[in-house]
Amino acid sequence: MKWHTQDIQLFLKERDYIDTVILPLYPVSFADDIQQTVAMTEFINLLSGQLEKQFKGRILMLPGMSYLKTISEEKRLADLIEWEKELISQDFKHIFYITSDSDWKTVEEQLDGGLIWMPSIPLDNMDDQYKLSILEDQVKQLLNVFVKKWQNND
């Protein structure tokens, strides 16, 4: 389900079936790494769109958390933990974060939810059909991650 009014109606109605929530993490910087953060944000945005299509009936795809790279890592982690607390209190059985920003990998253990780190692939110069097949590949890989997690807990 997307964070769209229509999808949320269905979400509220069929809540029992939608036990998984995904929060994309989008870095924002205006320094030397501005292009990198843009590429990461763009890539994760596209990928989470495809992912939502694959798993529409079981996941809720949140609009994503943007954060400034100038803010300290501790502060960012603290913010994410706030999100996590809220999501846990909403009874989601599975929580995932998806990002291209490797900063998060160093704090992975401090999170209850699973961190899916995908290195960003520069897609801007590709033709659509090719872009699509690359994203499909990535989604296929993630399919196994999700199915395994679901099977272990069911």
């Binding site: 299509k53 529409k56 009936g57 079981r58 399919l143 679901w150």
Partner: peptide, 25 residues
């Protein structure tokens, strides 16, 4: 998928060959 809209896969489940399988439920 006609349940809640996930994408089904052909032969997506080893236990159910020659079927379309929805990984969600």
């Amino acid at each position: 998928c006609k349940h809640l809209g996930c994408t089904v896969n052909w032969n997506g489940d080893k236990a159910n060959e020659n079927h379309f399988y929805c990984p969600c439920h």
